[in-house]
């Protein structure tokens, strides 16, 4: 068992571009769920719309990348408005189911043969990220420390993604400490009380949904650019469940929660993944019990188990306060 490989894999994943993308999407989800109390289970739909907005604009319609970005952002605003209309007046559980349904409807449409001319259907789209990598100032080489190494392309993606995470975190920090944020947090506690004080709960929820959704779509764009491809099956409900695990792990309703959560989530997940592969390779675990392709399934099972244990034993996550959690009246 080469522990150096296992640990370095974990670190590489924890601070890598994927962790940054998930941190960004989780920041959006944290605004919905952690601060406003919106049980939005369709965050992956925002990522989908942002990713395809960029990919289809460049790949199908030959538009410049920055136009694709604008289209992606625009579509996420439209999605938020469309999604919010039927769902924001619903109770939490209805909202959850409706948003999962909406996410699946979108994914199925993007995946369908009907939409193939624009979205590439089951095959998705490729070759749209060229402009992004062309502007990278990083010379061709590999970079890193110890065994943690990134290519220049990955490093550029990583840097931009984490910069976006930082920007989003600053925006959220400013907002939650403002009077706007106060109304949002009050809505999480008791909507009727907020109404009785003259604030339009629906309008605030919609603003939260739009802002968190736009942040989610930015994450989707970065994910697409990083992978240099989009495929509808990468945007299924499991992604939202991962995001919830990340938000809960870091601490819902805390500015740094999603960032800490994502770094830890990916580090731990990759650690187990890598350790399991090493164990199989070294013969500690026989391939008849778990073969190499099934290691991927084990990581999902672990996330599920982790989420269950978290919610039972430490629902406030790493950065949350237990005292505050006990005051949760919902």
């Amino acid at each position: 068992m080469d522990w150096a490989v296992i640990v370095s894999d974990a670190i590489r994943s924890g601070i890598g571009p994927v962790a940054a993308v998930y941190a960004l999407a989780a920041i959006g989800l944290n605004l919905h769920f952690g601060y406003t109390g919106l049980l939005n289970f369709g965050q992956v739909a925002f990522m989908l719309v942002g990713a395809y907005g960029v990919a289809a604009s460049v790949s199908t319609y030959d538009l410049p990348l920055w136009v694709g970005v604008l289209i992606g952002l625009g579509s996420s605003v439209v999605l938020a408005l469309l999604l919010g209309l039927p769902t924001l007046r619903l109770r939490a559980e209805y909202l959850a189911i409706a948003t999962i349904a909406a996410g699946e409807i979108l994914r199925l449409f993007y995946r369908s043969s009907w939409a193939e001319p624009v979205t590439g259907g089951v095959f998705g789209l490729q070759r749209f990220a060229v402009e992004f990598y062309d502007v990278s100032p990083i010379p061709r080489d590999t970079y890193g420390f110890w065994l943690v190494r990134y290519t220049s392309l990955d490093l550029w993606a990583l840097a931009v993604a984490w910069a976006m995470v930082l920007l989003a975190a600053v925006v959220i920090a400013l907002l939650v400490h403002s009077p706007w944020g106060r109304v949002i947090r009050a809505i999480r506690e008791d909507e009727d009380a907020v109404r009785s004080l003259g604030k339009s709960v629906y309008a605030y929820k919609m603003q939260s949904l739009v802002l968190g959704g736009v942040i989610g779509s930015m994450a989707g764009m970065m994910l697409a650019i990083q992978n240099q491809s989009v495929n509808p099956d990468s945007y299924d409900p499991v992604v939202t469940f991962f995001l919830y695990t990340i938000v809960v792990l870091g601490g819902a309703g805390r500015v740094l929660g999603p960032i800490v959560g994502s770094i830890l989530f990916w580090a731990i997940l990759t650690f187990f993944d890598s350790a399991l592969r090493e164990a199989i390779g070294a013969g500690y675990v026989s391939p008849s019990v778990i073969s190499a392709p099934e290691v991927g399934a084990v990581r999902f099972a672990l996330v599920g188990l982790g989420l269950v244990l978290l919610m039972i034993f430490r629902p406030q996550g790493l950065l949350g306060s237990r005292k505050e959690m006990l005051l949760d009246a919902r």
């Binding site: 959850a96 919830y244 999902f300 599920g304 188990l305 989420l307 269950v308 978290l310 919610m311 039972i312």
Partner: peptide, 14 residues
Amino acid sequence: FIITIGLSLLLRHI
């Protein structure tokens, strides 16, 4: 509800 989601993930992948 969130626990049932985790449970679903766990059972499905087992």
